[in-house]
Write a protein that binds this DNA or RNA. Structure first.
Length: 811
RNA sequence: GCCCGGGUGGCGAAAUCGGCAGACGCAAAGGACUUAAAAUCCUUUUUCCGGCAACGGGAGUGUGGGUUCAAGUCCCACCCCGGGCACCA
């Protein structure tokens, strides 16, 4: 057959037409096959896919296609994280309605996904801005409200002036808004809705050990740090005079005899009574200046109250200060400062000349050791009354017990994680389903009235208050309890709620009676492989785990965790630089496909680097991937039905290479996921096939072409389908089984034995596999190249590693 | 400051269990085909020394030490780069 030129565009358009609107990639409903749920994090519909997004989906799609060929019932869905600020900001900037803007983007990105050939089950597509989706956000919220997991309180919250809304703690980066890098986050006191994620803090932490096999260690570490469990004790100091207790939290109760002063956060409730009239303006200033401070170190500042507190262990009176570095939101908002054993306390007390003394000394060897203050490690207690001489660890136990027995303290655990503030003073999100009634107070919207539909086509103007406040048809409502005039909640939910459970909805996307059918969840969950960027290590991935545990406690699901295995792929950069709009180096999927084709993009993204590492997109590199695919296409088209009529000597060699390739790629899928080496293996196979092109028999040629196509399918599906058809076979390729490799065929004919002298390679032997040590040693020493080198030397030792090497140690 | 990653040719990388460092690709150089270009194909390509050559020899995986017959891989110290956390008491 004459060879044909590779025309990616023509091939890809042809197959897109055939795949369109077909049920080819649908997951089966009542299958006897084992299930496999592979999922890539759903995108925000920002407008266009670029080569950075594509990597994520290419990895997932390769896996989905491979697993189908391995006989799994694969669920591989896609959807849209469609609520959020960018839609609203675009609406303000371009006067476009957020709904229309979002829908337009979804259509465009879906077109790009199809063009890339990703094998999604589009019948399960979910867009989170669809009332049929977000009504279940509201439904969950009501259940949480009922169960005390959602509550409203006035709290200091993170406020971004640019967004004009509140941010969750997880959305504050370096003291600035995660979306506006230069905008410091302010602290404001606002009435907010919170979800009690802290109730699950311990479980979220403990279950991390069960995820260790499937999740990247660094993600688990980040979550561990984020939850920030810390064990210690709460201890009451008494206000000198009134005897009123001031509670502090400490992890180092063993150092309490070294407490030099008590320091309260400026927002601490007792500051009101402790601070004199002339001090109060300074306290207010301290609060304000910290609120407006950006990232970086804030200098420690303190204000003396002139009042004293009594140390419950030593009876000593120590001064009470107010300090800007003490956080109201952590522990009790008050600390005991032990400068001898804490770097921050040391800095503070040195600055203000507060006297201090040590309470713990290093465990020495009888000799006095030079101690550098502060000494923050454990040691032996000194000058600590009855506890002197005890090691720190024991002292903590004994002293906590004493505090508990005498009623001035107890063992306590605090967490860094705080409850999840979900109120956003924004339009484009899920309306929070509550009504404020002048008579009845907070009234949940009855379940039968869900969804509370977000009104469309409304004017979006300023910032600071939800645009919904200006929509009377939405705001004015009768109280469901008493029927009086009432108002709706105008805040909407944080969009991280949408993404906390979307992957459950994929299992039952059109259910109008419940968020999903629990039986379907029991079949599909947990997600076997989740793939996304590491930037979601704490936000999305901790919320999702929380949501799953909450649903489990409501009896909706039986799994404890949503995701069995997580893979975080590396970033895509362009010519060594980060892609960004301002640099103008963002390559859209469309541009890439026009120039190289979807298959080339997929192959190159996998080939250029292992998937967890950063990947540098260069057009020259992509060109290399293109010529590889061209070589494959031309080779197949000119060799279909060709070959020597009789078996040849070369057949064995070619089959060996084929089965070695199969072995490597299968191994990459099953364990390492280093698809860069999979593609390299395919290239090596092609090189070998080209080298031996004319010496391969017809039978072997047909076999090799078939298996080559099957192996290509997860990576370059368009080309695979095309050359499958060229071979006279019936599409689609992924309905055929992944080829098994034959270890007998894959094995090399002879073992190549390296002969070393003192660790340096000096020669080689070719022997049968399994040749014994004695024979190898004899042959190596007797080798004609080796003999002269041993002349006049004394052989000290010979190390023989069968099938690998012989190392002769000489003197 | 603390906690994770990582450092291998001109570049992206490979070496899966301590056993031949640099597979595969890019770029570069030379050549074939072509009126020409593109495309395609062939050859060379870690570095230094010797040789017309086949080839031979030395060095080499951030730096310095160590373990071992053998180290990119294990151990200790340090340097640099990337990421996370950062007054969390």
């Amino acid at each position: 057959m004459p060879e044909k030129q590779y025309d990616a565009k023509q091939i890809e358009e042809k197959w897109q037409e055939r795949w369109k609107d077909s049920a080819l990639f649908r997951a089966e409903e009542n299958s006897t096959k084992p299930k496999y749920y592979v999922l890539e994090m759903l995108p925000y519909p920002s407008g266009t896919l670029h080569i950075g997004h594509i990597r994520n989906y290419t990895i997932g799609d390769a896996l989905a296609r491979y697993k189908r060929m391995r006989g799994f019932n694969v669920l591989h869905p896609m959807g849209w994280d469609a609520f959020g600020l960018p839609a609203e900001n675009a609406a303000i900037a371009n006067k476009r309605d957020p709904y229309e803007w979002t829908m337009f983007n979804i259509e465009n990105m879906k077109r790009q996904h199809r063009r890339m050939g990703f094998s999604y089950d589009w019948s399960r597509e979910v867009a989170t801005c669809d009332p049929e989706y977000y009504r279940w956000n509201q439904w969950f919220f009501l259940k949480m409200l009922e169960n005390g997991l959602a509550y409203r309180k006035k709290a200091l919250v993170n406020w971004c002036n640019e967004c004009g809304t509140v941010l969750a703690n997880e959305q504050v980066v370096d003291g600035c808004c995660w979306r506006h890098e230069g905008t410091p986050v302010e602290q404001r006191a606002i009435e907010q809705w919170f979800l009690r994620i802290t109730k699950y803090a311990d479980e979220l932490l403990n279950a991390i050990s069960e995820l260790e096999n499937g999740w990247p260690e660094r993600v688990l570490l980040m979550q561990t740090n984020w939850i920030g469990r810390s064990e210690g004790a709460e201890v009451d100091f008494q206000l000198d005079g009134s005897g009123q207790p001031i509670r502090v939290f400490t992890t180092r109760i063993d150092t309490i005899f070294g407490a030099a002063c008590l320091i309260l956060a400026p927002e601490h409730p007792m500051v009101a009574e402790l601070a004199s009239a002339e001090l109060k303006p300074q306290v207010k200033q301290m609060i304000d200046s910290r609120a407006s401070k950006g990232p970086g170190d804030v200098d420690k500042e303190g204000l003396p109250t002139g009042k004293f507190a009594v140390n419950p262990f030593s009876g000593e009176k120590i001064p009470i200060w107010i300090g800007n570095f003490v956080l109201m939101g952590y522990g009790t908002g008050a600390i005991m400062a032990v400068p001898a054993h804490d770097a921050r306390d040391y800095e503070f007390c040195e600055k203000y000349g507060i006297e201090w003394r040590p309470a713990v000394e290093p465990v020495g060897f009888g000799k006095p050791i030079q101690v550098i203050w502060p000494f923050v490690d454990d040691g032996l207690l000194r000058e600590s009354g009855e506890f002197s001489g005890l090691p720190s660890e024991e002292a903590r136990r004994v002293m906590t017990a004493k505090a508990e027995a005498e009623g001035f303290g107890k063992a306590a655990v605090t967490y860094r994680i705080k409850d999840w503030g979900i109120s956003r003073q924004r339009y484009w999100g899920t309306p929070i389903p509550v009504i404020y009634c002048p008579n009845c107070g907070i009234v949940p919207v009855p379940e039968k009235d869900l969804p509370v539909v977000l009104p469309l086509g409304i004017p979006i103007l300023g910032k600071g208050r939800s645009p919904l406040e200006n929509v009377p048809e939405f705001m004015n409502v009768k109280c469901p309890k008493c029927g009086e005039d009432a108002r709706r909640e105008s805040d909407t939910m944080d969009t991280f709620i949408d993404s906390s459970w979307y992957f459950y909805r994929y299992c039952d996307p059109h259910n109008s009676n419940a968020p999903f059918d629990s039986a379907k969840i029991a079949y599909w969950f947990p997600i076997d492989q989740y793939i996304g960027g590491v930037e979601h290590a704490i936000l999305h991935l901790i919320y999702s785990r929380f949501w799953t545990k909450m649903m489990r406690d409501f009896g909706l699901v039986t799994n404890d965790e949503p995701v069995a295995r997580l893979f975080t792929q590396g970033m895509v950069i362009k010519d060594g630089a980060k892609m960004s709009k301002s640099k103008g180096n963002v390559v859209s999927a469309d541009q890439m496909i026009e120039r190289f084709g979807a298959d080339t993009g997929r192959i190159f993204e996998l080939f250029a680097a292992p998937p967890e590492k950063e990947m540098d997109w260069t057009d020259a590199g992509a060109n290399g991937a293109y010529s590889f695919l061209g070589r494959v296409y031309r080779y197949v088209t000119r060799n279909v039905g060709q070959g020597q009529p009789e078996p040849t000597d070369t057949d064995r060699k070619v089959l060996r290479k084929l089965h070695q390739t199969l072995q490597r790629i299968t191994g990459d899928f099953e364990s390492r996921w280093h698809f860069n080496t999979s593609i390299a293996a395919l290239m090596e196979l092609m090189n070998a096939l080209i080298e031996h092109e004319k010496q391969i028999s017809r039978v072997v040629m047909a076999d090799v072409l078939e298996k080559l196509t099957l192996m290509l399918e997860p990576f370059a599906p368009y080309l695979a389908e095309e050359i499958w058809e060229e071979q006279g076979k019936t599409a689609p390729v992924f309905h055929y089984a992944w080829p098994e490799y034959d270890p007998e065929l894959a094995r090399d004919e002879e073992a190549e034995i390296v002969i070393q002298i003192n660790g340096k390679v000096r020669g080689r032997l070719y022997v049968a596999f399994g040749t014994n040590r004695e024979t190898l040693e004899k042959q190596a020493i007797g080798d004609s190249k080796i003999q002269p080198l041993l002349d006049g030397k004394q052989v000290v030792k010979v190390i023989v590693v069968p099938d690998r090497l012989v190392n002769i140690v000489v003197k």
